[in-house]
Design a protein around this nucleic acid. Sequence first.
RNA 1: GCCCGGAUGGUGGAAUCGGUAGACACGAGGGACUUAAAAUCCCUUGGCCAUUGCGGCUGUGUGGGUUCAAGUCCCACUCCGGGUACCA
Length: 923
Amino acid sequence: MEYNFNEIEKKWQQYWRDNHTYRTTVDTSKPKYYVLDMFPYPSGAGLHVGHPLGYIASDIYARYKRLNGFNVLHPMGYDAYGLPAEQYAIQTGQHPEVTTFKNIERYREQLDKIGFCYDWDREVKTCDPAYYKWTQWAFLKMFGSYYDTGREQARPIEELIAHLEAHGTEGLHAACSEELTFTAGEWNALSKAERDARLMNYRIAYRGNTMVNWCPKLGTVLANDEVSEGLSIRGGYPVEQKLMSQWCLRVSAYAPRLLDDLDTLEWTESIKETQRNWIGRSEGAEMLFPIVGRDEQLLIFTTRADTIFGVTFMVLAPESDYVDLVTTDERRAAVDAYLDEVKHKTERERMIDKKVSGVFSGSNAINPVTGKEIPIYISDYVLAGYGTGAIMAVPAHDSRDYAFARHFDLPIIPLIEGADVSSESFDAKEGIMTNSSNERLQLNGLQVKEAIARTKEYIARAGIGRVKVNYRLRDAIFSRQRYWGEPFPIYYDEQGQPQALDESLLPLKLPEVDKFLPTETGEPPLGRAKNWTAPNGRPLELCTMPGFAGSSAYYLRYMDPHNDKALVDKDVNAYWRQVDLYVGGTEHATGHLIYSRFWNKFLYDYGFVCEPEPFKKLINQGMIQGRSNFVYRVKDSNTFVTSELKDNYEVTPIHVDVNIVKNDILDIDKFRAWRPEFADAEFILNDGKYTCGWAIEKMSKSMFNVVNPDDVVANYGADTLRLYEMFLGPIEASKPWDTNGIDGVHRFLKKLWNQFFEGDKLRLTDGQPSPEALKSLHKLIKKVTQDIEAFSYNTSVAAFMICLNELTAMKCRDKAIYEPLVVLLAPFAPHIAEELWHALGHAESVTGASWPVWNEEYLKESTINYTVSFNGKPRFNIAVPAATSRDEVQQLALAHEGAARWLDGKQPRKVIVVPGKLVNVVV
RNA sequence: GCCCGGAUGGUGGAAUCGGUAGACACGAGGGACUUAAAAUCCCUUGGCCAUUGCGGCUGUGUGGGUUCAAGUCCCACUCCGGGUACCA
């Protein structure tokens, strides 16, 4: 009987389906373990060979834990809302739901072929109303909450209202967008609409006027993590800064907890570090600078309070509220011109164009320590969103201030002994202070660190500032001017104030629209929906939620996916608690992995979940990269030049589908047929061939370099694919897809098969295994067990091969050896393991077996080989009985006939014996 | 610029505490079986020298250091990958 993997895999996949082999229920008699993959966005390209890398790794671990007696929760679902489906809908008119469901079906088919042990009864789709009901529910809870900075938790907004009614802002500890001060009397005198507006300053989900990343091409705003280098991650379109009224989540309120709790997580240091940087805690001081001739003062933030004596000018962000205040009439025209210029630059232009620019406001400020008057400038190198949007400029010790001072010819005062600031600033936070003393404050002679502390102390005492911790983490912008997302359960009242829809009306289902484009008046697509109103007739919110809304709590929903009373039942949550092992890519470090932690903490504050963190252990699988091919189009033509000759022309490289390229040679006919615009393409060939360029890039549809796992499964089987992807190298490593080694693992499975069967007959026997066979087996058990625990799957696969080679060499045919081996193999290659397990006479699935335990007795050596070295150079080996003592080993080594040659008549100065390994003789 | 991570044969990659490199696999070369091919099996395979001897030298990005012993630890540097960036 041949190893017919196609037949075997089909058979067992059907068996698992029919028997609900992987269905999981709460079972308090067993310890639980929750293994989760980051669920995929079902893209039109289908799964490529890179996706399963993490899925296979987690599947192995889930199966391993099951065999070890754990009740394992291992679900899968789809992050089904997203831009690509909507962009496709805009182009084709096809409803995004149709394409999304079609893609999901395709994904499911592909996933099933690889033989994962998911409990599909728990599948979730973020676009399913029964699912997004709970996304909307969580949003309403956030809308109805504020963050109590004293108790460090979310509280119902009603508590805040009660406080404001009784005390105003006096003694209030609440995270807010803007520090407000008012009395209870003032509050109570406000109209309802005014109070509603003011509450937005405190709500955790709030509507606020903020600078947002606006992407005109996509027609929507984007969160910071959806933008990279001034371009949108999806599509790569330019993004500009715009002041807009948008829904936001007060993630920033959780910054301290998000930072501190990182220490409790079993994540890699690098991803924790990425999050720490993103959260960006910086300790500094806020300081007030009086404005000459005015009552108002400028509030600035600095981490270098010690440099106060070197402040030679002030700078405001163009968007700062102070700008209007300090601009004098005679400077008005110049300032307006500058503001206008800045406004028309995109974020990307602002980054690339690092030319110094700015304008004098006409006003001066007073240095509160030196009393000197200094000019106030406006420049776009100061960011509105960080600190207070205003800085004190210390050109001697900040490179940006330095460049500005040089450009506008402003004074530069060095403050650190020996610092040479003639050609560049001295930015290091070290050295001894100078030029920094007067009757109020004396810093001369101090180290920078001491000077910072003393200055902070002084400004607090003098009432000109206070110590302040700033975070870089901004609130998440939560609305999208898009169709394909969760609708907000929000309507607008007569005063135009947003109001919560009653919880009983959830889910608020996404309405149908005639087109997926903005309305003629520029409203989001939901503006096209008929009767898009609350039961009271008031208009509903037209924006939808962003992609990360649905993915922030999906791991909780898997615990209790069919519950229509709660996101997750409390008892069920108390059993599954949190994800024990989460597997996914690092690209979510500053997006999903922050939002989920925030969302979970919010729910934790209310006791909806019992763990403060969602993901205990995180493994980041590397990306399997694709190998892309390029053709080179000659500028302004439809002519393509082969890569060898491309340097003679002005060319644009264009990605070409790797499936119409073989060994970098383009199939010209297929290329012409590939796309209509290439139908009459001309070619400049070399030697009659068109050679494509290539590059290792991310595997993605847009790069046309996708390799489909289905093809690999059809040719080699799922078990081979699984083993091979693990054998490629450590799961954390990124590597280009390459099928070169796949025959090796396939051969291993065939060899194993042939050990079992001779023709149709099982050739295994019931005999007593030899000590050698037992040793080989137990070595394998130990190695594989330890490797799986360490996620070192590639060496596990190697261990299987070694063991099989040993068993084959000793002609071992004992069932007692192969039976445990099959169990060990089951997590890696479940189909063949199932087949062999049944061949061994078992009626039940191998899933119900128990993981073998190794016995050290079998691993003991009777004799041990020592390598004897002289002065570190290995010279000969000696074999001694296992029980030989250190001293005896030393004597045996020196007594050996070879020793005399290397001792060369001298006495050894020192002899080092490493037990079980080697002897080193120092002569 | 800053913060992480990395560099080992022709290739992917092994190597717990520092313990005497290159596991395993691919590829390559040679052989067996076969009319032939495929499949399968066996041998060789870091480099250089010696191969009718058992061997010798060298070798983990570069240069230093610590140690009886360094891919592993320390210092300096080069290159590559990732993240992040006018964050005051």
